[in-house]
Amino acid sequence: MWYYEKKLQYPVRVSQCNPMLAKFLIEQYGGADGELAAALRYLNQRYTIPDKVAGLLNDIGTEEFAHLEMIATMVYKLTKDATPEQMKEAGLGAHYADHDKALFFHNAAGAPFTATYFQAKGDPIADIYEDIAAEEKARATYQWLINMSDDPDINDGLKFLREREVVHSLRFREAAEILKEERDKKVFF
């Protein structure tokens, strides 16, 4: 089970009225390499992975939900005061027609979220390598978003999230090494 802390992992501030940015940020909400896919992937894989690395998947999967909240907050702040006309101009006309201002799990192109975005192969090596790839893809996505955004406050949050992808990737690489390690191998100090 989880306990909930009613605060964001890192503060989200938005300094410019720019609803179009929300259309791009939604990629990290319901996209293939987004935070939802990451959270569900890790929290699902942890059941059948060796116990030495299950805790890592639990911790990182949980943190991904904290990132999901940050993205949701950014999208919400960027769209909550937009008029239907502004939504249309920002390329969010189709979204408005279907959801009004509600957030929805789809990617930047509007394709709805699907469980086929991730795998659980049951082979610990294959699963951890997928996790490393997922973190690198999410890092790249954050970079593309930062490249398109000129809002310094949004970029501050995005840079925090980009850094977390880097750290998660490193932790998963360590997990791969732990899985490859020889049992009963002599350790020298």
Binding site: P50, D123, P124, I125, L179, K180
Partner: peptide, 8 residues
């Protein structure tokens, strides 16, 4: 679980 040679 399998840790085939290419991993090393």
């Amino acid at each position: 679980y399998s840790t085939p040679p290419q991993l090393y």
